[in-house]
Amino acid sequence: MAQAVKTKKTSITYGLSTGEKAFGIVNFVILAILGLLMLFPFVNLIAKSLSSNTAITTGQVTFWPVDFQTGTYRFVLKQGQFWNSFRISIVVTLCGTFGALIMSCITAYPLSKKWLWGRKFFALIFVFTMLFSGGMVPSYILMRALNFVNTIWVLIIPALLGVYNMILLKNFFEEIPEAVEESAQLDGAGSLRTLFSIVLPMSLPALATIGLFYAVGFWDNYMTGLLYITTPSLRPLQTYLYQLVTEATNISAETMTAEDMELASLNTEAIRAATIMLACVPIMCVYPFLQKYFVKGMRVGSVKG
């Protein structure tokens, strides 16, 4: 089906006027330049991670590695800490995203029905939590009471429903014509079955989008790890990375002993760059993988007709 859409599109391009062709070219050139600008920091980080300490401290590295070396990557990958945290982050992101998607679907679906009894009230209950939060102290007390502190659960469960994402999803659900569902319900399907067999397959772009948001949210969340995790083997990757980056850069001289500062000078920028790269790669790969759902989503329209 996606194939069919594609061929249709190419057939359209034949009829382009010169003005439109020029627009296409200019558009592409602008985007390409923007893309290069946005790629720059990555090129810079990769170059740094592969350069010698001297080349970096003297500021010679911009686009290309100077005094090429791979020792930093070997160093980072040798760290037990890195792999441990990597595993934790994978587990948290996989379980978290899956659970959060389910939670969001079953919450967003009822709220997307205009005729739902008490819809406005329930929606406001959720929206309100987006605005007000109890703050750090009560949250800590709660996690402690639930025995979540210093367990993997604290990284997953409290983030299982992101109201922001849920509202996005609700908005996407609202776009689906009521008629499609009603026909299913006439066939005797219950609301859960309608949701899973009719609504969700029609919402793949939306699910891919908020799935991505959740995955990135779980992967990038370093704060929870900072506050609630004290056992190093349970520390997620971004918390580990955060500590690696900030410890080396934001040393406040007043609280540090001579030995601490000596240590900090050993933490070379190259190691940081390599760790950042390694920690980013998995989550960066998620998007290209999900992109096919953005195209496939075109099917939604065809069904609609």
Binding site: V5, K8, F172, E175, P205, A206, A208, T209, F294, V295, G297, M298, V300, G301, S302, K304, G305
Partner: peptide, 9 residues
Amino acid sequence: AAMAGIDPE
């Protein structure tokens, strides 16, 4: 994602 959902017709 929203654009992907627009009916090609």
